[in-house]
Write a protein that binds this DNA or RNA. Structure first.
Length: 382
DNA sequence: CACCCTGTAAGCCCGGCAAA
DNA sequence: TTTGCCGGGCTTACAGGGTG
């Protein structure tokens, strides 16, 4: 099936859903940005990485902690995990209601407890990666697994504050009347700066223009070499010094029709490609197919997600969004989980790997799995 | 004490304007 | 044409006050 361009979809959304907004196209663009985030989030979840995820957390630059950047999704080592069932827990499910059940919280002072967060609201809106408590030693993050009138099931994980991977999503639209790329491309470059600044792996250039990786191992000796080889060395190693501050940086960008001129990458795409360890291109076809099946020609399995979207956007009133990467209607969450899991093969085809050259989505997934399974307690000396 | 509402601050993203 | 910046719209976090 052929899908229209995302630009056309944006215009459709602007007139059909966001007609109330002062600037319909702007509102539609913002919503598309949210959709890219949601697609990325549920892709990571389909890779069984949910319990590693923290959303929109401030991350310090490597060796320069005065400057921090909020990153969309960061994946952290799990240093403790508890799965719990509680009988007859009425909505909303709050931190206060479950805190006594969670042994992982015993090391946290009351002042570091996040009392205001709700894992599941009275309107059945879940909070993805709900941070229950945080201090210098890490944070306890919980996700609802199941909820009924009889009981609630959830998973709580103690996560180490130093992530092993970060994801940043950028959507760039088509600018009306422009022959080249839009000015908003500059925004995407902000993510490139962050990607270069947070990891202990330094990216350098040799005189010949080759990309070189440079990183200190635990005894202070320098490990360096061609960038992709250095990354592989780090991921395969068990050297705490190499691993403890290494962050695999992943960028997910959507199309605006001007990233490429014929076969050649535009300057902006080159900047992103050399800054992230992995740069994934969310294709027009992928984003369009998802929006089409979610909203325009809805498929049954996404019905709950469509309902949550329509009740969150296009109403002209704020304050009750149930369709974001953090706040998600519980039945919509189930639908999205099922969709991204059962269409995993198809979803994989929505992403084009721009860098590394030989990269595939499967390889990225494997690298994340390898990193996630490292002996982090030993690496961080816990 | 839990829960609700309100306001403030900060941050991010998209779109758009205008100076360079 | 390129670049820097700003507005609008959204988010989260948090504090304070009221209520049951």
């Amino acid at each position: 099936m052929a899908y229209p361009s995302v630009d056309k979809l944006q215009q459709t959304l602007a007139s059909d859903v966001f007609s109330y907004a002062a600037d319909t196209k702007k509102a539609a663009g913002r919503a598309l940005g949210t959709l890219v985030e949601i697609m990325t989030y549920y892709t990571i979840r389909a890779w069984d990485m949910r319990d590693h995820i923290v959303i929109e957390r401030a991350l310090p630059e490597f060796g320069n902690p005065q400057i921090t950047h909020n990153v969309e999704f960061s994946l952290h080592p799990i240093v403790g995990k508890e799965q719990k069932q509680i009988a007859s827990c009425a909505l909303p499910i709050t931190v206060a209601k479950i805190k006594s059940e969670i042994g992982l919280l015993s090391g946290f002072d009351a002042e570091h407890l996040n009392r205001s967060n709700q894992l599941l609201t009275s309107r059945d809106t879940r909070r993805n990666s709900c941070v229950l408590a945080e201090n210098g030693s890490g944070m306890v993050v919980a996700n609802i697994d199941a909820h009924s009138d009889e009981r609630v099931e959830f998973t709580a994980c103690k996560l180490h504050p130093q992530p092993f991977a970060v994801f940043e999503c950028k959507r760039v639209g088509v600018e009306e009347g422009m022959k080249k790329g839009p000015q908003t491309i500059e925004k995407a470059k902000q993510g490139a700066y962050v990607a270069r600044a947070v990891s202990s792996l330094q990216k350098l250039r040799s005189r010949s223009g080759e990309a070189i990786g440079y990183i200190e191992s635990s005894d202070g000796t320098i490990v360096s070499g061609p960038l992709t080889e250095t990354i592989k060395t780090i991921i395969d190693s068990h050297d705490g010094g190499l691993l403890c501050n290494f962050i695999l940086t992943v960028g997910v960008v959507s199309n605006h029709g001007n990233w490429f001129t014929s076969e050649n990458q535009n300057k902006e795409l080159r900047v992103l490609a050399q800054s992230y360890d992995w740069l994934l291109f969310l294709t027009d076809a992928g984003l369009a197919q998802f929006i089409d099946e979610l909203l325009l020609h809805p498929v049954e399995e996404l019905a709950a997600a469509r309902k949550a979207f329509l009740s969150s956007y296009g109403t002209g009133q704020s304050g009750s969004n149930r369709f974001t990467k953090v706040q998600m209607d519980n039945s919509a969450d189930a639908a999205l989980q099922y969709y991204f899991k059962s269409h995993a093969q198809e979803v994989e085809g929505w992403y084009n790997v721009i860098s590394p050259h030989s990269g595939t989505v499967k390889k990225l997934r494997d690298e994340l799995a390898v990193l996630g399974a490292k002996n982090w307690k030993q690496i961080h000396g816990l």
